[in-house]
Design a binder for these strands. Structure first.
Lengths: 161, 161
DNA sequence: CAGGCAAGACAGACTCTTCTGTCTGTTATT
DNA sequence: AATAACAGACAGAAGAGTCTGTCTTGCCTG
């Protein structure tokens, strides 16, 4: 996705883009920031809270939302993971991705806290592994990935109760 | 990693590289093939069989090997996942990565078969989610990722016994 | 064993494309 | 009248792939 493709899809002149963003890297950073707003908070967190009555159910509901996501035909994996693996942990955008992923995990931990689980930080790390693993599996074409992760999630909750 | 960097690190002339590989894409494919030989079979499978006495222990030993891997300072994530997420599922190299990942899963399933577990295909898909999730977590810098995945692995084995 | 020849490796210049970022000159809006 | 948008040309860098001309290596034959 080059700058030319960006401006064409945005229906905007090149100079206009560069008036608003000093460089392509800055645009990438801004994209990731918006992604956190829309994906992490506007979608994952919102869907979880909407679909589950209790904190535990809300945790499990993350994978109900993922299940619908994975079955969309234009499915594209998580931008944070993509950017992290492509740019690496040293690049500014890679670092930003790590921070945004940490915020996803923080949301998981807050649900775990509300659920009264033990060692919620370790729990959230493990839960996040299920989320990231299922996203990669979905990228491979495994449409059942969310259901598998949800099952493991149930086992994990039992363990930390 | 451009072609110029490749030939410089290989200590080889550009024409020599292009004598052996018709294009950079072909080189990528050959790299992935070698990676399967060295990583999947020469390392993961070999370490698992070496470190565990029973098939179940061998499954769990995958994460002991991962643990050492994640703690290496020059740690680089799984090439198959990287290429899959970077190139996408449509690109030839992306497709190849999906096949190589399927072979990793096939190895897991063969251990599950030997262990006498139920529904070994579903088990292997779930186990593979743990592997991939822990690799992404390690890319973020979570050095405990392998241990977390191993714990979940134990729960999963109980469930499929 | 020795001389020569073919195959392939070498460095690096070159072309062509693509990409980022800048600049120009015009048009619309407020 | 000023601000910002527009289309698009342009510069400079980087990347893939080709080509030239030299040098090494190993093998075959006399």
């Amino acid at each position: 996705m080059g700058v030319d493709e960006v401006i064409e899809r945005a229906g905007v002149a090149k100079a206009t883009l560069y008036r608003h963003f000093p460089s392509k890297d800055a645009l990438t950073l801004a994209f990731l920031e918006q992604r956190e707003e829309r994906w992490t908070y506007g979608w994952v967190a919102a869907e979880a809270r909407l679909r589950g009555a209790t904190p535990e159910e809300q945790l499990l509901a993350i994978f109900d939302a993922f299940d619908e996501w994975f079955r969309q035909d234009g499915f594209e994996a998580c931008s944070f993971i993509n950017v992290l693996l492509e740019m690496g942990n040293g690049h500014p955008a890679g670092n930003a991705s790590v921070r945004y992923l940490a915020n996803v995990r923080a949301f998981v931990q807050s649900l775990a806290d509300e659920a009264g689980l033990r060692e919620t930080e370790a729990f959230a790390h493990s839960w996040h592994i299920l989320m990231k693993g299922s996203i990669v599996a979905a990228s491979e074409g495994d449409t059942e990935a969310a259901k598998r992760a949800q099952k493991m999630g149930r086992l994990l909750i039992e363990q930390y109760r």
